[in-house]
Design a protein around this nucleic acid. Structure first.
Length: 570
DNA sequence: GCCGTTTTCGGCCCGACTGTTTTCAGTCG
């Protein structure tokens, strides 16, 4: 049975090949919309299609459903194979290079016979790219620069974690707020929507004089180089290599610009379609009526209100069902930073943390937490100085002493106990019973494929002493995707046993991700937010986990951290 | 290829910017 990801990949490729072949634009877009819809669907779309129910999903019609059935039953799609014969697949990567696109990629093929990246490299080295009609020196230089990267044109190349991009964007936003004449500055785009990875950052600025903003960018110590732009938008590159787009509008239409720049693109398309049905043309410049009068909005909520919609949290603007929900005024109350009372998965220098428990507890108190759970590693994880049972008991004594001395916060005796290869835990039950709370995590066998990962996680979920599963999938961005978990099965058992599933806020983990978390919530499970901090400066990673939870649609009642642990079982 | 507060056919979001242009197509977000 093909996974949603495999179906989505097939549709994406088919759309790309059709686009190169010059197919009608909206047919191409239909495949891309279908791919996105399948990819984010909570259950198996192949099973739905075999039951004739995939057409219940928006953007999936009879034709796409038939192709999903074909893929499930034969392992391939005839239309995709035909498209591959007609158009070399390597051109897809060419078309992804900046400055190229489907038209120019095809022109390169026609003029030079180049069908893949390697062929393009050879053509560039031979100085022949400029022979292609429509390719001037600027485009040749742009393409040549990208070819130095071995991953040039690969899908998803150069996506960076939310946790690495967000601080850079916020630092620049803070600088811009101090510029004379600047009234408001917000981080927008996929960062504002809380996407786990982004390929650039967007900042919007309310100011009457765009030139002052441009000058400030030019002078900023955070900026390595300017990356072009005009009066309304400028792009810069930070020293770590993040591209940040800065858009400027006068304060009276800041709401229109913020809404536009936040996206998602699909959400905005739906919004503009809705506007058209009401006789309004919508853009970042405002709402234009049929007689040409333009209405502008200083605040974003006014834009939605002008279309008869309640304001929609940015994390939900992904073209699921949010417009219908907002039209009915049923927008959910998502979990917020102020709801968070504490967390139970941070480390100390008893294992691989950088500071002692008292320092961590004081830092947690400074964030307004009422409790903090020290969850150091268990004995099997030797490289982290995992605790033996003897050291666990000494740590408990130290925590008792700390609680007697520290004020304003309660320190909890927790552990991040390893789930061993056979699904058993790294401590025996007697010892586990002595902890306030037990987080069980996988740290080995994370490249396994198939069902064994699910079985190990399920064994831990069923364990009577386990309160939460840490970073369930075990992904590490840029290194491994982690396990292919049957998250529905896990979440159902987690709901039945009262076991929490963690959203780990480490920038390279963000695990569960928002799609898995959304599915887990639908199956009735509750979530635990963790920074997995190894020092005080990591505690803000919890804010990243919070964004992921909001993207999953989680409200305060879905998140354990909004309550004291004493309430969790109830 | 999808879809319906104009529709089962004929539409399908909107604008900025760039480069190669002799008036605009292609790309990008």
């Amino acid at each position: 049975m093909p996974t949603n990801g495999e179906i989505a990949d097939a549709f994406t490729l088919l759309g790309d090949l059709l686009e190169l072949d010059g197919a009608v634009r909206h047919r191409v877009l239909a495949y891309r919309r279908g791919a996105a819809r399948v990819r984010s669907a909570p259950g198996s779309v192949a099973e739905m299609a075999l039951a004739g129910r995939a057409t219940d999903l928006p953007d999936i019609g009879a034709t796409l459903q038939a192709k999903i059935v074909e893929l499930a039953q034969t392992g391939s799609i005839a239309a995709l194979e035909k498209a591959r014969e007609r158009t070399p697949e390597g051109l897809v990567r060419l078309a992804r290079l900046e400055g190229l696109g489907p038209k120019r990629a095809m022109a390169v093929w026609t003029a030079l016979g180049v069908t893949d990246i390697e062929g393009l490299r050879a053509a560039v080295e031979a100085g022949r790219l400029g022979e292609v009609p429509g390719m001037g020196p600027a485009t040749v230089a742009q393409v040549t620069a990208q070819l130095a990267d071995p991953a040039a044109g690969e899908a998803g190349a150069e996506r960076v974690s939310l946790g690495l991009a967000l601080p850079q964007a916020e630092d620049l936003a803070r600088e811009l707020r101090a510029v004379p004449g600047v009234r408001r500055v917000e981080v927008a785009g996929s960062l504002r929507r809380g996407r786990e990875t982004v390929h650039d950052a967007d900042i919007v600025v309310a100011a009457d004089d765009p030139a002052a903003v441009a000058a400030a960018l030019e002078a900023s110590p955070l900026v390595a180089m300017s990356a072009g732009g005009g009066d309304q938008r400028r792009a810069v590159m930070t020293h770590p290599g993040l591209r940040i787009e800065v858009a400027v509008a006068p304060p009276e239409r800041f709401g229109n610009l913020l809404q536009h720049a936040t996206g998602s693109a699909r959400h905005n398309v739906r919004l503009r379609e809705l506007a058209l049905r009401r006789g309004l043309s919508m853009s970042e410049h405002g709402l234009t009526a049929g007689d040409g009068t333009v209405t502008v909005h200083a605040d974003e909520a006014e834009v939605y209100a002008a279309l008869g919609l309640a304001w929609i949290p940015p994390e939900l603007r992904e073209d699921r069902d949010e417009l219908a929900v907002a039209a009915e005024g049923r927008v959910p109350r998502l979990v917020e930073r102020a709801d968070i009372l504490g967390e139970i998965h941070v480390h100390s220098d008893w294992s691989d943390g950088r500071v002692d428990m008292a320092t961590m507890a004081a830092a947690a108190r400074d964030r307004g937490y009422r409790y903090i759970g020290i969850a150091d590693h268990s004995q099997s994880l030797a490289m982290t100085r995992g605790l033996t049972p003897d050291r666990v008991k000494r740590q408990w004594e130290a925590i008792d002493a700390l609680n007697a001395q520290i004020e304003g916060i309660t320190v909890l005796k927790c552990t991040e106990v390893d789930i061993l290869a056979d699904g058993r835990l790294d401590f025996d039950d007697d010892l586990l019973a002595g902890f306030d709370l037990v987080v069980a995590s996988l740290h080995s066998g994370l490249r396994a494929t198939g069902a064994e990962g699910t079985a190990r996680v399920l064994a831990a979920v069923e364990h009577p002493h386990v309160d939460a599963i840490g970073h369930p999938r075990g992904r590490m961005m840029g290194r491994r995707d982690g396990l292919q978990l049957d998250i529905e099965a896990i979440a159902e058992r987690a709901a039945a046993t009262g076991t929490l599933l963690e959203i780990n806020g480490q920038p390279r983990r963000l695990d569960l991700d928002s799609d898995l978390a959304r599915t887990a919530l639908a199956a009735g499970a509750r979530l635990l937010l963790s920074s997995d901090a190894h020092g005080p400066e990591d505690l803000w990673f919890l804010d990243l986990a919070l964004r992921v939870a909001r993207r999953a649609g989680a409200g305060p009642e879905d998140i354990a951290n909004t309550r004291p642990p004493a309430d969790w079982r109830a």
